[in-house]
Computed example of a mutant assay.
Amino acid sequence: MENEQIIRKELADMINKGNAHATFEDAVKNISKENRTKVPEKLPYSLWQLIEHIRIAQWDIIEFCKNPDHQSPEWPKEYWVDNLEPTDEQWNNTLNTIRQDRNDFLEYLADLNNHLYKPFNHGNGQNLLREAMLISDHNAYHTGEIIILRRLLNDWK
């Protein structure tokens, strides 16, 4: 059991901390309002669309883990939003939802009643370990993209 607790802690750190990379919180800190929906040349999406995509995908992964009846959004159409100008409330709600969903998943991951290696009774053999790594990998990839977009918009440190 001790090894499993170590693995759960490492997974939580991968999801919650930057380790070798900037954290999501670092990447989204102080993004200027005027740059939220700008799309840099030759790129397909804005910071708003990218951050909303993180929210939607993370929510989908978490719901898949917890709810055997969960229906994922249609790929790719429902994983990406139109580039409309979000209100400050929408922007803040999205950021807060990403954090809250992540924290809820970390509690789920820490619960020893939720098996790391046993495949879910639904899906195609996925297990909690795989889904935790998927959240970490997906969010780290897009967090890096947020930083690149911010650099292209001259909105990074």
Rank of each mutant, 00 (worst) to 15 (best):
F120K: 13
P119Y: 00
H70E: 11
K77H: 02
D82F: 13
T37H: 06
N114R: 12
P73S: 00
S72Q: 05
A12C: 07
P86N: 04
R8Y: 10
D155F: 01
N30G: 10
A27S: 13
A110I: 12
L112C: 09
T97G: 13
N92A: 07
L11V: 06
V39T: 14
T143V: 07
G144F: 04
E85N: 13
Q5K: 15
W80K: 00
E63K: 05
P40D: 03
L112R: 09
A22E: 10
S32G: 05
K118Q: 06
D137M: 14
A20T: 06
N35P: 14
N19W: 11
M1F: 15
L134Q: 14
N114D: 12
F64E: 01
G144Q: 10
D155Q: 08
N139T: 14
A27Q: 13
E63N: 10
I61G: 03
P119H: 08
N121R: 14
I62V: 08
V81T: 09
W48F: 01
R8P: 10
Q5C: 12
W59R: 03
E25H: 11
I135D: 03
V28L: 09
W91A: 07
H53R: 11
L129Y: 05
H142D: 04
N127L: 06
N103T: 04
T97C: 15
R130H: 06
K9D: 10
N127C: 12
I98D: 03
P119A: 12
I146Q: 02
L109D: 13
L152T: 04
M133A: 09
N3Q: 13
R99A: 13
Y117T: 15
R151C: 01
N121L: 15
N114I: 10
I146G: 02
D137V: 08
T23S: 09
N67D: 09
I15E: 05
I15S: 08
P76N: 08
N139I: 03
R36Y: 03
L50Q: 10
E63S: 07
Q58D: 03
L116E: 02
R8E: 13
T143I: 08
G125R: 03
I146D: 01
T94D: 04
K42W: 14
F120I: 15
Q90P: 11
N30V: 08
I56H: 02
K17F: 07
K157S: 09
D101G: 15
H142E: 01
N93P: 05
D111K: 13
N113Y: 01
D13G: 02
L11R: 04
L50I: 07
H53Y: 06
K157P: 15
